[in-house]
Write a protein that binds this DNA or RNA. Sequence first.
DNA 1: CTGAAAGCGCTTACAG
DNA 2: CTGAAAGCGCTTACAG
Lengths: 343, 343
Amino acid sequence: MNDKQDPRKNATLKDVAGACGLSVATVSRYLNHSIKLPKATTDRIDAAIAALSYQPNPHARSLSLGRSETIGLVVPDISNPYFAHLAAAVERAASEFGLGLVLCPTLSRTDRELDYLGRLSRRHVDGLLFITNNGDDPALARALQGATTVVLVDDDIDGAIAPTIMADSEQGGYLATAHLIEAGHRKLAYVGGPARLTSSRSRVGGFRRAIAESGLEISISAELAGDYSSAHGRAAANRILSLDEPPTAIFAASDEIVLGMLAVFKQRGVKVGADISVVAFDDVGPLELFDPPLTAIRQPVAAMGRRAVERVLGLIKGGTREPETEILPVELIIRESVKPPRN
Amino acid sequence: MNDKQDPRKNATLKDVAGACGLSVATVSRYLNHSIKLPKATTDRIDAAIAALSYQPNPHARSLSLGRSETIGLVVPDISNPYFAHLAAAVERAASEFGLGLVLCPTLSRTDRELDYLGRLSRRHVDGLLFITNNGDDPALARALQGATTVVLVDDDIDGAIAPTIMADSEQGGYLATAHLIEAGHRKLAYVGGPARLTSSRSRVGGFRRAIAESGLEISISAELAGDYSSAHGRAAANRILSLDEPPTAIFAASDEIVLGMLAVFKQRGVKVGADISVVAFDDVGPLELFDPPLTAIRQPVAAMGRRAVERVLGLIKGGTREPETEILPVELIIRESVKPPRN
DNA sequence: CTGAAAGCGCTTACAG
DNA sequence: CTGAAAGCGCTTACAG
């Protein structure tokens, strides 16, 4: 009855083995499903584990195995709704695959991004899902050279050869703009993110393609690059309203931008829908709760999270590294912010 | 020139020691700042580290030390803006203190919450910051008994004796309601979260106290408990509008609830401010961008995150466990959703 | 002050 | 099939 077990210390594999008269090797193998044991034996082991409330020590396991069954999510800012939703999707997928998730927020600082890459090389995590707004920073591409288990999410990194999961921004821009044109608009504006980001360039690209393919006489009142923030939205709205020939419809490249524009429009008495049509991009905010409910391109957030996890898992399992870019389809969610233009 | 270093493998302490003709003990001590070495020696070590791009293996360190310098954040849902902001605040504080952060999202399922508590006892993480909506589940209080390094955040757990960091919900309810009364409202309603949560009960408590202390003849048209969601907000708004004697002002216990109410009000042509006044609670959404900009009680999210990290760090460092509850002050942010009632 | 050595708790070739 | 033993890469009492 007197096991010299200090109850304050966690039980170890050795304790369990001792308690059921087996070797640690056997118990370890049983726990790792690499052995078949008679029912009587496994019962004994299970009983010992329960009695000692044995919990394997993950650090010992990681050290021995050389991997941690944990991945990191590098993300600019978790309090941004789009990233928060993406993070939630990633976590869901990771936990389905039995992977732990370490949060690595960068505040978009390249030095912190590089730090986390170091964490990977230290084997702290087995792989990294990498979301960055600094894709044009050559330091990033350089640091990524050696890393074999990172997948880029949401945007790519110039000059880096790595598996990438992105939404179809080009198609999103196209769908949004085509929708506007279909509603009868002929004077359009684009308000978008930083021109240095692929995602952003693709959205304008789709915007222009829709216009070109329409074969109609369509004027572009403005193309305002900036960032994906509501501040940019406000500035852009003010600028657009002061144009000599303002557009009758706007495609904005993020929810946040639209929220900013909305504030200005309201303040200046411009009614979205009636006075000016708007399509947003992301569709993570409660866009249906706004006045009017906002039509938007919906990003495939859940699918992106899941695919990113699957891809990184493939890399970890040592597959050949196919640096293929996967583009996931977006969807046009029609609500009430697009109406025919006034005549 | 021929070091038998496989370049694909990470360098170890031993490699570094070998490269500079010292023992691993000395290099380890130097790295852990538990030793003073002549500059010439440290230079040699630093050079070796750089040359081999040595990175300490965190799992070996954790195993040896018995701690991981990592904490976990248990949270219902990271895509909820309030929790996303709280998580961002926690992460900021954690990284300031050199702590890693593991995300532990529960989807409010008690089984997953218990799982993560197991992670703690396995020493996977040194401590846990625990946010739950299941504070009334006795299983949680029971599981918490043994855990010495968890701090409860945002809400408490019935019957659990643990350090707790909360916002002053009672005072928030009071401030919101007093503000409504001051504006001239005499018919009020409360729309809140689950009555089983302390945070929720405190908010109604403050609501009632403000009414009682006003010494005025004030009628409570409705007190609708539910949850903190926009769905509850919609339902509540419909119910309130169909009251024989509807209130002229509402205190709602979360941003989300107000967003739901807003949708209904708009749809039914009720103007917030002019027709009905509203105060929200949380102030994490872009409340200033709504129509009208919403007055709200602001939760001290940043302070909560920081204090939670400081407290858990105190517990980890082995302080005595003082299960004291800390209540952080909230703030009334006045915008435009409260106007005097119509006569 | 410095180093050889034990120990942290696992996993898994290697022998029996 | 099973176990003794080496090894994963650190930290740190314990001796010199």
